[in-house]
Design a protein around this nucleic acid. Structure first.
Lengths: 343, 343
DNA sequence: GATTAGCACTCAGGAATGTTGAGTGCTAAT
DNA sequence: ATTAGCACTCAACATTCCTGAGTGCTAATC
């Protein structure tokens, strides 16, 4: 793929992409010359456009329509053409204003962040919450509910909290629950959740616990407690997608909304972003998810210290305002990182 | 409104409604006679239909189309005609299978319930979670995070848990946090949240706390902790709405999806259901919410003992399978009640 | 008096047709 | 290398016509 492109072609491609981003309509050669003062005749532009089509940057919906940028064109645009705008002052302020911790739990904060991303970009906001399973364990608390039910509250070093209801084999006394919690906190405090699981396995097999019924029970209970896999995603502003003219087609919409509901495909995608810090851009089919074939995803990781916590971003049509949205995602991620920084 | 309706009219109305529920298309006089063996000629049926239209039970989209039931017709149908089906055995089993507590927190359970309702009804499931603010307080736990941040964990008698991050004016020592929690648990345990708030106000004004800085701080902290109002709603299976033929119109869709996102209108509606236990049916405009004008909502309250905890239900087109869905909602609510029963 | 056959009328929706305009590719002149 | 000119294409829109399911009304029938 030698995409050696003359400056003029580049300029025309840029014009087409940027026009298309605002109008959502196929762009013709005359339109271009009218809107952008290139001092070129439509005919010339036509020739260039034909070349760009051969190179795979443009495609025409039908013979006599204008042309539309392909995913490849957007990719080229994002990589080589686009100049990122600074985040506008009002937007910075809006982001700042919405980023506060106090009085909320982390989930709420992230949900609001997702909503913020959607409202500021006019697309759809998405946030992958930190996984409890990647944190450092701090303490567990058992609360006796009615009958054989126990409420387990898990607290991580970074302030994440999970709680589970567990049905035990037999009733456990309140005081015993406290003792069990103390024992477990002693044993497990400061370990990563992976280590916790490992340790639990070891301890259960170790001989000494055989003697102490309570300990054995505690281990069993906590193993249930730590069993669940978690991955929480907040997708807000889904309705914004409906504003996009390209999605008047109901069947396409349906597929997208189903994907938003099922989540797991998206979680997989976001997981990939988790691996490398910073901004990621998936354009159309690049995500390899069929419901996303007409959508782009811009993400950035948010961190605490050097730990990557999660991913946040914006989903919009491939025809998205990259120049504006990329900086917004980037800025928001940094702010959320700062917010969650737990010195 | 003297809806004195002859048995024959009633029968015809029923036929129209039930046909319309499955076909979603205006029903004509001939269609009726063909599909339901009424031993009446189309002409007679036409006369009856004209009467029903005069009474406000039917309306015609245009002169030469068939007729469509009005909200009033559905209301009459639900109140006087319909015979509730038993919940089919497979459905009962499916509901049972999905209702389990263990290893999850209450939020997850309710979210799954909402998903269940949607998948079983093929419409949209909705669940209003119990409000923390209506529960009996059990204990609070403070965990020191970095700097001046404190994580407060509130536990209610019924197993509900809330956690908040609070930014304090000055750093508080770990041991002090423990002492504060003990003090507060002593002071507040067993009170309803409303009482808790009241008590906090009183204590803060009471003279004796003036002497004890720690106590004063504890009160301040907990007041922030108890400040938030909460109302969580789980709406699942939104995409199912897109399957309904009447919603190919995108603008209508948009309005509905926005309402699903904003929630507060729906919360208001569900709150009304909270007031009286049992099944509620809102048909079309009865909900007085404009986005719901073509939708019906069937809800039931779920309880623990004699406390109403929350509301769950199904949202579908007014042309909904009432006879099937009402029993499902009812049954599910009862099962969830049983599940959350904390003896 | 209730029912029904018959008839003239209505109207959405689909097919057939025409028109328009923004677009194209190609060729020859600049 | 650029551009003017021209013949061609085709979606989108408008117009027209046709069909069929539906209606309301009246007069005949049970």
């Amino acid at each position: 793929m030698q995409d050696k492109i003359s400056p003029r072609s580049r300029q025309i491609l840029e014009a087409i992409i940027e026009d298309y981003i605002v109008t959502a309509e196929p762009i013709g050669s005359r339109t271009i010359t009218r809107r952008h003062d290139l001092s070129l005749s439509p005919a010339t532009v036509r020739n260039v456009m034909a070349d760009l089509e051969d190179l795979g940057f443009l495609s025409s919906p039908h013979t006599s329509a204008g042309r539309v940028p392909t995913d490849k064109a957007y990719r080229f645009y994002v990589d080589s053409i686009l100049e990122l705008r600074k985040v506008a002052r009002e937007e910075r302020e809006e982001i700042r204003r919405h980023c506060s911790l106090t009085g909320k739990d982390i989930g709420e904060v992230l949900k609001e962040t997702s909503r913020l991303l959607s409202s500021i970009s006019h697309y759809t906001g998405i946030v992958l919450a930190p996984r409890f399973t990647t944190t450092v364990f701090r303490q567990v608390e058992f609360v006796k509910l009615g009958g054989r039910r126990v409420l387990a509250i898990l607290i991580a070093e970074n302030g994440l909290v999970q709680n589970r209801i567990i049905e035990t084999d037999e009733e456990i006394h309140r005081e015993d629950l406290v003792r069990m919690a103390n024992y477990l906190n002693e044993l497990l405090g400061g370990l990563s959740i992976a280590q916790v699981k490992q340790k639990l396995r070891e301890e259960m097999e170790s001989a000494k616990t055989q003697y102490d019924l309570l300990m054995a029970r505690a281990l069993k209970l906590s193993q249930e407690t730590f069993a669940a896999e978690d991955s929480e995603v907040f997708i807000e502003g889904q309705a914004n997608i409906l504003d996009q003219p390209e999605f008047t087609d109901v069947t396409k919409m349906k597929e997208i909304f189903r994907a938003f509901e099922e989540r797991h495909q998206l979680v997989g995608l976001l997981d990939r972003c988790l691996e490398a810090p910073g901004v990621h851009v998936f354009i159309g089919t690049e995500s390899r998810l069929s419901p996303m074939s007409d959508l782009s995803l811009i993400t950035s990781t948010y961190v605490s210290g050097k730990n990557t916590l999660g991913v946040l971003g914006v989903i919009g049509p491939t025809r998205m305002g990259y120049a504006k949205v990329i900086p917004i995602v980037d800025y928001t991620a940094k702010l959320v990182s700062k917010l969650l920084e737990m010195k």
